[in-house]
Design a protein around this nucleic acid. Structure first.
Lengths: 231, 231
DNA sequence: CGCTATGTTGATTACTCTCAAAAGACGTGG
DNA sequence: CCACGTCTTTTGAGAGTAATCAACATAGCG
C-alpha cells in the first residue's frame, strides 16, 4: 500500500498546466461543463458525487494525491461509445474535502499529448485500472447485511487507499488520512448519518478505532478489525 | 445500446485460440489457477462471483457475447502493482449461466500479441472502460433504500446491457436476454432470494414486467419503469 | 459571537431477513 | 412415459435492524 502510481509522464504533463489552490468544500468541476477538462490532484483530497432524485447524495469516488479525474468520461470521449452500462442521470460534481492543490488541463490537450507518446496511454490505463479496482471494492460493501460490517469494510478500504504517511510499515495501527464526515461515509455506503455515528461509537467503545487530535480515524489494529469481518 | 465493442482485433486473436462448448452452470476458470488465462465469450452468458466468509455468494460481474474476462487481474499482471484498492480475499469463480462457446488463450500470448500491435492495447482499454462503467453503475444500486428500487434499477441496467436482439428499436418493450435466477439477482444486489421473488411478483401484478415463454424477464415499458425510480 | 455543519442520542416505524414448508419446472434414468 | 431428484419459485409468520423524526450538543468559521 501507499505505492505511488507509476504515472510520472502524466504528472509532468499536468504540472505544465494551470494550478489552483482550493479550500475544503470547493467545487472543482461538474460534468455538465461544456469544456471538458481533466484534473490532477497534487495534494489534498476530493470526492465525486451525484444528487439522486430523492435529494440524497450518492458519493461515487474518492480522490487523493496523484489521482486524476474525471477518468471515465475522459476515456469515453477518446475511445468512443460504450456498452451502455453507465446508467448515470444528472450531473456529477467534483468537490474538495480538504485544502488542495489541483492542476487542470483541457481534455483535448491530454489527447494530443497521449497521441504523441504511447507510454502516456499506458499510464492512463493504469489510472483507469486503479479506478476499476476501487469501484469493484466498493461493490463488496453491498453484500454485507449489517451496517456494522459495511462500515468496517469501508474503513479497511480507506486504510488501504489513504493511509497516513507517518505510519510505520508493518504496524497494525493505521491512521486514515482522508478527512471524511459521518455524512460522507453514509453517502458512500448508502446508510444514514446517524447509523454511522452509532456504529462508530460502538467500534470506539470496543477499542477498535479512535480519533487523533486532528479528527483522523485511527484503526488500533487493522488485523483485529479485519478479523471481525471474517468471523 | 446493443452496440458492439469495437474490439475486432481481440476477437480475431481469440478465435485463433482454443474453443470450447460449455453447458449452463459450468466452471470456466477460477482465479487461484496458476496458469493465468484469458477468455472470450463468443456466445452465451457467464458470471463471476466470490464466496464470502459467511458462505454468501457475491456476484461481481456479468458477461455476455463479445466480453473478455478476467480483465482486472490480466491488466494488473501486465501493468504492475496497483493502488491497493482491490480488497479481494479468496477465489473468484467464473461460471457460465447458459450454454456458451468460449475461446481461451494464455495471458502470456495476449501480452505478446498486444506488444506487437498497439491498437490491441487500445481495444483492451475499451474493454476495461466498459467494465468500469458497469461497476460504477452497480454502485448506484447501493444508494436506493428499498429493495423494490434496487431491483428496478438493476432491471433497467440489465435491459441496457443485455437486451434481446429481437427487440425493435425505440420500442418501450425490452426483453432481457441474460438468464438470471432470483438467487442470482439477489446475489448481485445483496438481497435475499425471497425478497427478489416478492418484489418481482409485485412488479408483475402492476403490469410493469412479465415473463416470456423461455423465462426471460420482459419489461413492458422501460420508460414507465424508469419513471418509478425518479419519483 | 452567532451561524452553519457535524455529531449524539432516544423513540417509533417500517422494512428485509430468516426460517419453514410446499409447489412448480426441468432433466435424467428406469 | 412416468418416477424421481434437483433446482427454482412462491408464500407465510416472526424477529431484528436501520431509517426516520426529533431534540440537543459541539465544533468550526467568518
Amino acid at each position: 500500500m501507499s505505492e505511488n502510481y507509476t504515472t510520472q509522464l502524466l504528472a509532468d504533463f499536468f504540472r505544465k498546466g494551470r494550478s489552483r489552490q482550493y479550500n475544503d468544500g470547493d467545487l472543482v468541476y461538474e460534468s455538465s461543463n461544456p469544456n471538458p477538462s481533466v484534473f490532477y490532484l497534487e495534494s489534498g483530497y476530493a470526492k465525486s458525487y451525484m444528487i439522486t432524485d430523492e435529494g440524497n447524495i450518492n458519493v461515487m469516488s474518492l480522490y487523493g494525491p496523484n489521482y486524476i479525474f474525471p477518468l471515465i468520461p475522459t476515456f469515453r470521449s477518446q475511445l468512443g461509445r460504450g456498452s451502455g452500462g453507465y446508467h448515470a442521470r444528472g450531473t456529477i460534481y467534483y468537490e474538495t474535502i480538504s485544502p488542495s492543490v489541483i492542476y487542470s488541463r483541457s481534455a483535448k490537450d491530454l489527447f494530443t499529448f497521449s497521441d504523441r507518446n504511447h507510454d502516456v496511454y499506458k499510464e492512463l490505463s493504469i489510472s483507469l485500472l486503479n479506478n476499476s479496482e476501487i469501484y469493484l471494492s466498493r461493490i463488496g460493501a453491498m453484500h454485507y447485511k449489517l451496517a456494522r460490517d459495511k462500515l468496517i469494510y469501508q474503513l479497511l478500504l480507506l486504510a488501504n487507499l489513504f493511509p497516513s504517511q507517518t505510519a510505520q510499515a508493518k504496524s497494525p495501527k493505521v491512521v486514515i488520512d482522508i478527512p471524511l464526515t459521518h455524512q460522507d461515509i453514509g453517502d458512500i455506503l448508502g446508510l444514514a448519518r446517524e447509523t454511522i455515528s452509532r456504529e462508530m461509537e460502538k467500534l470506539k467503545k470496543s477499542g477498535l478505532i479512535s480519533s487523533d487530535d486532528s479528527h483522523h480515524i485511527v484503526i488500533t489494529d487493522i488485523n483485529e478489525l479485519s478479523d471481525l469481518l471474517t468471523n
